[in-house]
Nucleic acid binder design. Structure first.
Ligand SMILES: [Mn+2]
Ligand SMILES: [Mn+2]
Ligand SMILES: [Mn+2]
Ligand SMILES: [Mn+2]
Lengths: 241, 241
DNA sequence: ATTAATTTTTAGTCTTGTCTAAAAATATGT
DNA sequence: ACATATTTTTAGACAAGACTAAAAATTAAT
């Protein structure tokens, strides 16, 4: 069952002993994100788009990662993380989210400023560092965007019954529990409109013609939110009138 | 006076806009350290030894750094940092020492554990991050090994009248103000013997045959310290009996 | 002032990660 | 089923950063 690996003239009996490059780590992380909870197969073009890279570069790297038994790769059929690969991906995500939490909680960064810096910090290699940071932050469960932080052992506790705001029905009352962190400008927009974690909103009306939505905040303020916005907010159902 | 630079098809009118690689940053930092306060010329072989690299690799890189106007390099005559190069080197050292301070002060690392991690963290690129960290740590003046932390503008306030313990004379009373951070095992040894920053010691005797020294701690305990050890401790003179 | 030893540079090779262009496989539409 | 469109892979190139081996320059020793 043990896998042996011959790299650069050295024999490794455990992949963990071999340090991955930033690039390799980014591939694993992105495959994890694209696979979703059901571990879909990820296509070459998909990965290329997300990594701002070309399909041919992806193919090259997938072959290398398959060689190292971090992904299962079938020509023309896309790829999947192996258990090893997934384990590594989750640890990188743990580091990313803990660093984002540190930046917001301790250094007073805005939630729209932390992702790019965390993209660098997630590659720092020290288990003791990340576990100490986790302790220092008092073992946070979610990052500044509401995403769950994997624990030391890689266990991720997903939010139960989280749906997109765009999927809610008129008259329901919901609480914002996460936001998509991809765009800093969206995060700034959300904060300006007080659409932050923990806020409750009521869906007043949904418009079919452009898939937008009218909502009310707790203070009675009403807002129109575009399709793009409501697809990037995660909510928890509270009640319905 | 302005320098223009053509790199990878782009024209830069300010070197700072161009991101350096980790490798380039390590070269600049090491040249700074080897130059000393008097800005000696640094030889290729010296640099190769410190960077665990070969002389030929050094030559290649020096030519590249000279092209970017970060070092002044004269064939067969070694190199020197330009003002630009020195400015960058100092900022990397600032990051290194602030991160070391963070690890010791906030995450409770030992002083012998932090250097290797700081070697990674010093390359994180974010001015806002490092200035926030500086504030969070309350603008520390020295790192865990007693080395001065450059400020935001690159100003370094060196300790006045610091000498090596090996250079002191018998019967003087001195205070430990810095230790060489290069060897984790030396740091562990020093801590075990309570030879930490702020401690005062008296020189009892110096032995010519092996350049070792006998010293007394404040509690009366006496110790023999080897040449190697006393050359790696920086002290401040207090008094003489 | 020559010769010998040491240091530094050049020339050529390798690996990693990327790219473009062309070929091959797969998916789609009628 | 067959032609067309799309996706993916291969082939070949390049830049960065490192290495070895050999050549050139500098320094040290007689
Ligand atoms: Mn992020
Ligand atoms: Mn996040
Ligand atoms: Mn250090
Ligand atoms: Mn230090």
């Amino acid at each position: 069952m043990k896998a042996y690996l011959f790299i650069k003239g050295f024999l490794f009996d455990n992949i963990m002993e071999y340090q991955l490059t930033h690039s390799e780590e980014n591939y694993l992380k992105e495959i994890f994100h694209l696979s979703g909870v059901d571990a879909f197969r990820v296509s070459t073009n998909n990965l290329a788009a997300r990594l701002n890279s070309k399909a041919s570069s992806i193919t090259d790297m997938l072959q290398k990662l398959a060689e190292k038994e971090l992904v299962s790769y079938v020509k023309y059929k896309g790829c999947n993380l192996t258990d090893k690969g997934e384990g590594i991906a989750v640890q990188i995500i743990r580091k990313h989210r803990l660093w984002e939490t540190f930046l917001v909680m301790k250094l007073n960064f805005g939630w729209e400023e932390v992702h790019d810096i965390a993209e660098q910090l997630e590659h720092i290699d020290s288990t003791k560092l990340i576990d100490s940071l986790d302790h220092f932050l008092d073992y946070p469960k979610f990052d500044p965007h509401g995403d769950p932080i994997p624990d030391k052992d890689g266990k991720i506790t997903y939010r139960k019954a989280k749906i997109k705001l765009s999927e809610t029905v008129v008259n329901s009352l919901v609480e914002i529990v996460s936001v998509n962190e991809d765009s800093a400008s969206l995060l700034t927009y959300l904060e300006k409109n007080n659409l932050v974690l923990g806020i409750c909103i009521r869906i007043i009306e949904k418009y079919e013609f452009d898939k937008s939505m009218r909502i009310a905040l707790e203070n009675g303020n009403e807002l129109n939110l575009s399709k793009k916005v409501i697809e990037n907010i995660g909510v928890k159902f509270i009640s319905k009138t």
